[in-house]
Amino acid sequence: MKVFTPDAVAKAATNKYLGVLVAAKYARELNALPLERSPYGADKLTTVAAEALTSGEKKLQYRLVRTRSSFTR
């Protein structure tokens, strides 16, 4: 079992909270792939996503998009 520390996630992203959100979104994308075409085998998708985020190989790229709030005053 691999353990990803908050420091490792924060180093890969702006902060640890953003890192967890990015990894979770990526895991959801991996989950949408058909199971028979998945190259990850028995690995948990959250572990694969965290590994992609924290590895220094720039496998996972993300960008922040500001959205307009639908709340009007």
Rank of each mutant, 00 (worst) to 15 (best):
26 Y>G: 00
31 N>R: 14
33 L>D: 06
37 R>C: 04
18 L>I: 13
28 R>F: 08
22 V>L: 02
17 Y>R: 14
18 L>A: 10
4 F>L: 03
24 A>S: 11
8 A>F: 04
6 P>R: 15
12 A>V: 03
15 N>M: 09
9 V>N: 05
12 A>F: 03
20 V>Q: 12
28 R>S: 08
6 P>N: 15
11 K>T: 13
11 K>M: 12
13 A>V: 05
11 K>F: 08
13 A>W: 03
19 G>K: 11
26 Y>M: 04
25 K>R: 14
34 P>K: 06
11 K>S: 15
31 N>W: 08
36 E>H: 11
21 L>M: 13
31 N>E: 11
24 A>E: 07
9 V>W: 07
26 Y>S: 00
33 L>F: 00
30 L>P: 01
23 A>N: 07
8 A>E: 14
9 V>T: 07
13 A>Y: 06
22 V>E: 03
16 K>Q: 13
24 A>F: 01
30 L>M: 02
25 K>P: 00
23 A>E: 05
33 L>P: 01
17 Y>I: 12
13 A>C: 04
4 F>E: 00
33 L>M: 11
6 P>A: 14
15 N>L: 08
26 Y>K: 12
27 A>E: 10
5 T>A: 15
25 K>F: 00
8 A>P: 07
19 G>Y: 09
5 T>M: 14
21 L>P: 00
19 G>T: 09
26 Y>I: 00
30 L>Q: 04
8 A>I: 03
8 A>G: 08
36 E>P: 02
33 L>G: 01
15 N>W: 05
30 L>I: 01
35 L>W: 05
36 E>V: 09
23 A>L: 02
11 K>C: 12
5 T>V: 10
11 K>H: 14
28 R>P: 00
19 G>N: 10
4 F>M: 03
24 A>C: 04
22 V>G: 01
4 F>A: 02
5 T>P: 12
29 E>D: 08
37 R>P: 00
14 T>Y: 10
14 T>D: 11
9 V>H: 03
10 A>W: 05
17 Y>A: 15
16 K>I: 06
20 V>P: 01
26 Y>H: 13
25 K>I: 01
20 V>W: 09
20 V>S: 10
7 D>F: 10
27 A>K: 13
8 A>W: 04
11 K>A: 15
36 E>N: 08
23 A>Y: 01
9 V>F: 08
22 V>Q: 06
3 V>I: 15
24 A>Y: 04
20 V>E: 08
33 L>W: 05
20 V>G: 04
22 V>K: 06
21 L>I: 03
